[in-house]
């Protein structure tokens, strides 16, 4: 391959990117209560300790509920926006889309305190429901980015053919467009679930007395003796995330191939 120097740089960069993730399982299986070198033997006791943490299981259940609700809601909202932005021209399009995509660049803490002020102002008690509201706000822009790629590569003539064959707008969407962008939708569901599962700030501000997995993890960092168990939990979460993302990537590519588009690579 050309660009030898660049390739060495790229590999070094990847090592830098993956360094913490590679360390994670090392400490999860390390037989020592302190997270430091040198290592002192292999153990699976930190994984076994996971079973005996009721607070963790409660947090995991919360995360699962929030994650599933978030992924469905934000993907539904993403479908509307992505379809509108790729198929129609309308006044104020730039402004409206800009506002919807804003959470991508705004610091999350600003979004979180803004939502907190609103929710407490109108008297909504903090719960997993309010966390979901926040997560949908954060996840929708990602969903739109993924789905826009899927809708973009859609061939307009397929839609026209469906109209010519006597279908109306709703049935055309249901029978022609939706199956074609289905891989994009699955990809969006999986990625928004992954983001929600990992999101901390919104949950930290909006969860009230309950906690999600990241909030639980953050609270455990204060206790040094709890950290090896967190490393074990983290290992499981990273494996889960990578699996979900790989499936999402598979569907994203299949979707683009199905609609005949050119793969420009990447989710964004």
């Amino acid at each position: 391959m050309k660009g030898g120097g660049f390739k060495i740089y790229a590999v070094a960069y990847l090592i830098f990117l993956y360094a913490p993730i590679i360390l994670l399982p090392i400490f999860a299986f390390n037989n020592a209560a302190i997270i430091a070198f040198p290592l002192s033997g292999f153990t699976t006791k930190w994984f076994q300790a996971l079973w005996a943490e009721p607070a963790l299981w409660n947090a995991a259940k919360n995360s699962l509920i929030v994650g599933v609700s978030t992924s469905i809601l934000s993907t539904a909202l993403g479908v509307f926006a992505a379809r509108a932005s790729t198929r129609y021209n309308f006044p104020g399009k730039g402004g409206i889309l800009g506002m919807i995509m804003l959470p991508l660049v705004l610091p999350e803490i600003i979004l979180a305190v803004a939502l907190l002020v609103l929710l407490l102002g109108i008297g909504v008690p903090l719960s997993m429901f309010t966390v979901t509201l926040g997560h949908v706000l954060v996840c929708t822009p990602f969903s739109i980015a993924i789905l826009s790629a899927a809708f973009q590569s859609l061939d307009r003539s397929l839609e026209e053919a469906s109209y010519d064959l006597g279908e109306n707008a709703v049935t055309t969407f249901w029978l022609v467009i939706l199956p074609l962008v289905m891989p994009g939708i699955i990809s969006s569901l999986l990625i928004t679930f992954t983001i929600s599962l990992d999101e901390f700030i919104m949950a930290f501000f909006l969860a009230g007395t309950e906690s999600t997995l990241p909030v639980y993890i953050f609270s455990q960092f204060r206790f040094p003796q709890a950290v090896p168990v967190i490393m074990a939990l983290g290992t499981i979460l990273v494996l889960l995330s990578i699996t979900l993302l790989s499936i999402a990537e598979y569907f994203r590519r299949r979707g683009i191939a199905r609609t005949g588009g050119k793969d420009t690579g990447g989710f964004l």
Binding site: A84, N89, P91, M99, V113, A114, L137, T140
Partner: peptide
């Protein structure tokens, strides 16, 4: 076309207005 486009984007735009624009204005 404009009407369809606006209709199509309205759920997402409404969500972002209520839970993003309004809260930002509130702070």
């Amino acid at each position: 076309e404009a009407i369809n486009g606006l209709k199509m984007i309205s759920p997402t735009a409404l969500y972002a207005t209520l839970l993003l624009a309004v809260p930002l204005f509130l702070i």
